[in-house]
Design a binder for these strands. Structure first.
Lengths: 203, 203
DNA sequence: CGAGAACTTATTTGTTTCGAGCAAGTAAGT
DNA sequence: ACTTACTTGCTCGAAACAAATAAGTTCTCG
């Protein structure tokens, strides 16, 4: 029985990429990075035990692939939510979107941040990619502060420290969410109080 | 040639525990958790390839052992630094000690927090232990706030949110340090501005 | 123009190496 | 002699890569 699909080679590759992405997301979320096997990704995706290894070359490259795919999706959402906003409005929208994504698309967010925290483990090949995301985030927050016409100059002079605190606190909130996924109200409360504290600080 | 050490069995165990602990710390810091092998821990510690496996049973149990050993050391330091302090003094001391530990004992702190972040990966057996540390930290900060005679009641009414923000931000700062170990001034600046923001908030 | 061959790429299966985990053995202490 | 710390042997599973097979693409020739 022929398994011809009628797809082009490129379409076949994209299809298997997508199926293996979803399989990897599931497996990382179920078993963590240390329990995720290339073999299982291939099989879970409906292919052979060897395809993931053939396609990605290593588990690290698979993680990098997943991070890019999932991270791009998430960063797009964040950018849409804060487009053309500055100051407290941008902060509020970012935090609302952040929380909403935790609620609505938990699987991809869980994977994204699992890999995010994985990146600080020695030898991780994700570090450079994540570092660039960090810098981007920090710069975005800095821009929200410095471009806002309502924020006083003395606050703007402290923008770098405020942005650093904000980004650090978001990391900690995400950590809380990953560690306590059933406690959405605790996660929400942390988003809300960070919003409150930031709004106070930016007045 | 006899390898008799003149130690009791208990002393022999403690010695090998300690040597394997140090080996594990080195290996985790060099290679990350995913690159750390029970075999290598045994050999690095000066024993056979099989001892770590025999002693700990699994890599997960080794990590739990390391976390307890290193974490107890670190938590002792933190407790000494904040003993009998409340309010902004406790906060400042905790942050100073936190930063100082990053500078003076980076290897153990790196390992501790590497495992800390590892614990949010699915399937990690460290999660419960870390969760209890979290609760403890949160409660400590809450106590610092509520027991301080100089903090106003309206601030005390918000103590839970403030404590949650503080703990979250510390996590983010640690993350920054792990991701940017060469940038001690950035880590120090984050500690200092968190100190500043907390002191403002607690007035 | 269409069929089939040649070529390229996607996917599968085979094979080797390495580490985990546990059993069996040896060394050191009681 | 007995118990416990540590070592070595052995089996199995996964990674990584090679070799093979399947599917799509392009070219050639009747």
């Amino acid at each position: 029985m022929s398994l011809a699909t009628g797809l082009t080679q490129a379409e076949r590759t994209e299809r298997s990429d997508q199926l293996m992405l979803e399989a990897a997301v599931e497996l990382i979320n179920e078993r963590g990075t240390r329990g995720t096997r290339l073999k299982d990704v291939g099989i879970r995706a409906g292919y052979s035990r060897g395809l993931a290894g053939q396609r990605f070359g290593s588990i690290e490259n698979l993680f990098a692939f997943v991070l890019r795919r999932v991270g791009d999706e998430w960063l797009d959402h964040l950018m849409q939510a804060t487009r053309d906003q500055t100051g407290t409005e941008a902060v509020s929208r970012a935090l609302d979107e952040h929380y909403r994504f935790c609620v609505d698309a938990p699987h991809h967010v869980q994977t994204f941040y699992t890999l995010w925290f994985e990146s600080v483990s020695a030898g991780s090949e994700l570090a450079d990619h994540i570092r660039s995301i960090h810098r981007r985030r920090h710069r975005d927050v800095l821009t929200w502060i410095c471009k806002d016409p309502c924020i006083r100059d003395e606050v703007k002079a402290d923008a770098d420290a405020i942005a650093a605190q904000f980004c650090s606190t978001v990391i900690g909130i995400v950590y809380y969410w990953l560690a306590n996924p059933e406690d959405l109200s605790g996660t929400r409360a942390r988003h809300e109080s960070l919003k409150r504290f930031m709004c106070e600080r930016l007045q």
